[in-house]
Design a protein around this nucleic acid. Structure first.
Length: 262
DNA sequence: ATGGCGTTAGAGTAACGA
């Protein structure tokens, strides 16, 4: 089974890229998208359905938005935290950042973790609080489905080897110790990084800034992740970042990341 | 470098991303 995650920075602007890339992935079972940036009523559903794909969406105007594209129907589709954790967490669902479903007995969770903006921004504690709620959500899901694949744009580089530069890391959004600690606490539920099963060295990134020729100089960050529970981790046979679409005309600033298990 | 680029909303700039 193959699952991929890709922050496309607007599904409408990136429609051709997404379809072209999908055409080159005949064995892909699920593609999790983030930052679709469109209300559900304006989502280009037909472009996917006409090509035989199924798609489940959860979006809003202008910001955020997630979707899961599959070849066979996604089961037990669940949008946001509230269906699992109850109405007390409903405020966290105002921003559309979570969609999940079950495919071949595996629960696939698609997260678009808040960026946080800067350490002195009010968005920073929002990001940490969101990650705490996400941890509670995954803990609840684990009691129902033991096999979990949690993927998406986490907006966190967990280790120094996941960042091109070592300048001001501790004070930088996406690398600060509290963010890393919040992600580690979530992973401590029993999730492992698919990418690091196969690749130990640095210099592998999933996001490059549009500015200053970040991609051409490979000045990037590895912030898009596929985390899996123990059994799936043991069965994993490959995890790769595909930088190809990042080099296309008018690209997303993120590249897709794929995980395959038997 | 309060820099660099790109998207959305909506009509000139502003918010946001990471």
């Amino acid at each position: 089974m193959q699952v991929a995650t890709w922050n496309v920075n607007s599904v409408r602007s990136r429609l051709d890229h997404i379809l072209t890339w999908l055409d080159g992935q005949p064995h892909l079972d699920a593609l999790c998208l983030q930052e679709t940036k469109v209300e559900d009523g304006s989502f280009p559903l037909a472009a996917f359905r006409d090509r035989g794909y199924q798609i489940e969406i959860s979006g809003q105007k202008s910001y955020n938005g997630v979707a899961i594209i599959t070849r066979t129907p996604l089961e037990q589709v669940c949008r946001g935290f509230a269906p699992i954790l109850g109405e007390t967490v409903a405020p966290w669902d105002e921003q559309k950042r979570v969609i999940a479903g079950v495919l071949n007995g595996v629960r696939i969770v698609n997260f678009y973790v808040p960026n946080g903006s800067a350490l002195d921004s009010e968005k920073y504690p929002y990001k940490l609080g969101w990650l705490g709620t996400a941890r509670d959500y995954l803990a609840a899901l684990l009691t129902e489905t033991p096999d979990l694949c949690v993927c998406g744009d986490f907006n966190i580089a967990l280790e120094n080897r996941d960042i091109w530069t070592d300048r001001d890391r501790d004070r930088h959004i996406m690398a600060s110790p509290p963010e890393r600690e919040a992600l580690r606490s979530l992973l401590a539920l029993g999730l492992q990084d698919g990418f690091r099963k196969f690749t130990e060295d640095g210099g592998h990134f999933s996001w490059w800034d549009y500015r200053s020729g970040g991609f051409a100089r490979n000045r990037g960050w590895r912030i898009d992740h596929l985390y899996v529970t123990e059994k799936l981790y043991d069965r994993a046979i490959a995890c790769t970042i595909d930088p190809t679409p990042r080099g296309w005309d008018k690209p997303s600033d993120h590249a897709p990341v794929l995980l395959e298990w038997k």
